[in-house]
Simulated scan of single mutants.
Amino acid sequence: MSVCYKQSIMDYEPPLLEAYKTLLQSSSHKRMKNVKSTSSILSKVLESSGEVPVIDLGRLNSTDHLEREDCMKEIIEAAKQWGFFQVVNHGISQHLLQQLLLEEIKVFHRPFADKSQQFSTTTHYKWGNPFASNPRQLLWSEAFHISVPLGQTNMGDDQPKCLRSIIEAFASKVAALAEMLAEILSHELNIKSSYFRERCLPNTSFLRLNRYPPCPIPKQVFGFLPHTDSTFLSIVYQDQVGGLQLMRDGKWLGVKPNPHALLVNIGDLFQALSNGAYRSIKHRVVAAKKEERFSAAYFYRPSNDAVIESHGTPRLYRSFTFREYIQQNEKDLKQTGDKVGLSRFLYVQ
């Protein structure tokens, strides 16, 4: 039985260790120095796990005007001070979220050969980092990037019907949630309420299903490297394993999972739009030695031609289209291995 179990695991695991073997063996002395440094950092972070603000969105439906106003103020303040916040009573049922997680586990536990060859028409399967040029760029994760809404595309007979219907239900509800939060945040900036409806069309956002496999070398790699999101907002549902960390006051803070909450974070576009008032915070995922971790992230993005213009004086960022921003990020990643991000679009003082 144990042999069959091991074989089934090998069937669905992406060959991360094999793909990274040469890179990990190169410059081993330098890598060992990084291992000690990373180990020290991770131990400190995991001892200081904490709670980002938790906001009860049910108050937005209150008949008490002051209660609604207080809830909106909390959202705005969290975007300014933290860049991250959790929301409960968000309108997405626990049953739907649990179904999404169960179906996600099923699809990631399909044989690797199937995952890497199927879902190609509307869903892009990715694993690791094929462009890594040094050990610090290694990713211990796999993901499905799914275009939404699914009704506009043909996903093929190989797409599990149950997963499709759950993704459609989740994407529909989380899209409405993202639009509502964006409008609350834009009101503080004196931006018209139709701003996001005009720019974030139904087919411009996408969903990413993430799996972080057990990692035999958790002190040498990350599940996902430190980064900021190139979006207006990201909304994440995660399991209870933990591993997500955000940068706060120059230190990495572990985010304690909340089974009833969705995690919301401000992206680069909202930081630029708000002229720096809202914060797009660097975050990462650490690798775990024995446990696999799952999450589903919805990225609220505009069309490629949408112009992002800072609202504030003096303007910190020059105007740019979303296409320009993505192209610049891709160029930087190819040339340096890192995303430079918003600093490329700062006005020269």
Rank of each mutant, 00 (worst) to 15 (best):
S8I: 14
E18C: 14
Q25T: 03
Q25C: 05
S40N: 03
I41W: 01
L42S: 09
N61Q: 04
S62K: 11
S62H: 13
H65N: 12
M72I: 08
K73L: 08
I75Q: 02
A79V: 07
V87I: 06
N89T: 06
G91P: 03
S93W: 00
S93P: 05
Q98H: 15
E104V: 06
V107R: 00
R110V: 05
Q118P: 06
F119V: 07
P130A: 14
Q137V: 04
N154Q: 04
Q159H: 11
P160A: 15
S165C: 07
I167H: 03
E168T: 00
F170V: 06
F170T: 00
S172I: 00
A175L: 00
A178Y: 08
L185A: 13
R197T: 01
L201F: 12
R208T: 02
Q220G: 01
P226E: 10
Y237V: 03
L246V: 08
L246W: 09
D249A: 13
G254T: 01
P257L: 01
P257T: 10
A261C: 03
N265R: 05
L269C: 09
L269W: 12
L273S: 14
A277S: 15
I281C: 02
V285K: 02
V286D: 12
K290A: 10
E292A: 07
F294T: 00
Y298W: 04
R301N: 12
V307G: 02
I308Y: 09
P314L: 01
L316M: 06
Y317S: 15
Y317P: 04
F320Q: 14
F320N: 12
D332F: 00
L333Y: 15
D338Y: 14
R344F: 02
Q349E: 03
